Simulated assay, not measured.
Amino acid sequence: MTGDERTADVEPALRSYGVSVESIDGGDPLELTYMTAFPGREVHRGEVGRALNALIDRAEAGEWDPVRVEGTVVRSPGDVLGTWHAESEWFEALIGYEISETDFSTRVLDTLDHESDEGAESEREAESGPGGDR
């Protein structure tokens, strides 16, 4: 199965789960960019879950071979809210009942990187100086 065939199968599944796919590259890794319906300060964990559930369901049905997934969440085109990823081994362990859904979710959520966090970190450093709190 080529990357294009994987993308053709995966994109409709993601959309059926309410994921607003902006772009997808079905290679290895699968690079998914989607527009959030919750353009706040943080990535909405429920949306991450919907994207993952679409992929898990495809994998359990034998319609998708798990690869690393790199998710980019945007508020609008070019305005990145954050990123996350899931390793192929995590999908395989979940499908093989080697880890629980909670363990899988925890692993993915631990990879969340909010773009706004970097700005907040810089602001805190500027307020407190390079040596920490004053």
Rank of each mutant, 00 (worst) to 15 (best):
T2I: 06
D4V: 08
D4Q: 10
E5C: 05
T7V: 09
A8F: 15
A8N: 13
A8I: 13
A8M: 08
D9I: 15
D9W: 12
V10Q: 08
V10E: 12
V10C: 06
P12H: 12
A13N: 01
A13V: 02
S16P: 03
G18F: 05
G18C: 00
G18Q: 03
G18Y: 05
S20Y: 14
V21Q: 04
V21E: 04
V21M: 12
I24G: 13
D25G: 09
D25N: 07
G26S: 10
D28K: 13
P29I: 03
P29G: 06
P29F: 06
L30A: 04
E31N: 04
M35I: 13
T36F: 01
A37V: 10
A37M: 09
P39R: 06
G40P: 01
V43R: 01
V43T: 01
G46F: 05
E47I: 11
R50P: 02
R50C: 12
R50S: 12
A51D: 04
N53M: 06
N53S: 15
N53K: 09
A54E: 00
A54N: 03
L55F: 02
L55D: 01
L55V: 00
I56C: 00
I56S: 01
I56L: 08
D57T: 08
D57C: 05
D57Q: 10
R58M: 13
R58A: 06
R58N: 05
A59P: 03
A61N: 03
G62A: 10
W64G: 02
D65Q: 12
P66D: 03
V67I: 11
V67S: 13
R68M: 15
V69K: 05
V69W: 05
E70C: 15
E70L: 09
T72H: 03
V73M: 00
V74C: 11
V74E: 11
S76D: 14
S76Q: 10
S76L: 13
S76V: 11
S76C: 04
P77A: 09
P77F: 09
T83H: 14
W84R: 07
H85I: 01
A86G: 03
A86N: 07
A86R: 06
E87S: 04
E89A: 09
F91R: 01
E92M: 03
A93V: 00
L94N: 01
L94M: 02
G96D: 02
G96Q: 03
Y97S: 07
E98W: 02
I99Q: 12
S100L: 02
S100R: 06
T102Y: 13
D103N: 09
D103H: 01
D103P: 00
F104V: 06
F104Y: 10
S105R: 13
T106S: 13
R107W: 06
V108K: 05
L109M: 09
D113I: 08
D113T: 15
E115T: 12
S116E: 12
D117Y: 07
D117N: 13
E118F: 10
E118C: 02
E118L: 09
A120N: 13
A120M: 13
E121H: 07
E123D: 09
R124F: 12
E125N: 10
E125Q: 10
E125V: 07
A126P: 01
A126T: 14
A126S: 10
A126Y: 15
E127F: 14
E127Y: 10
S128C: 12
S128W: 11
G129H: 00
G129C: 04
G129F: 08
P130F: 11
G132I: 11
D133I: 14
R134N: 15
R134M: 14
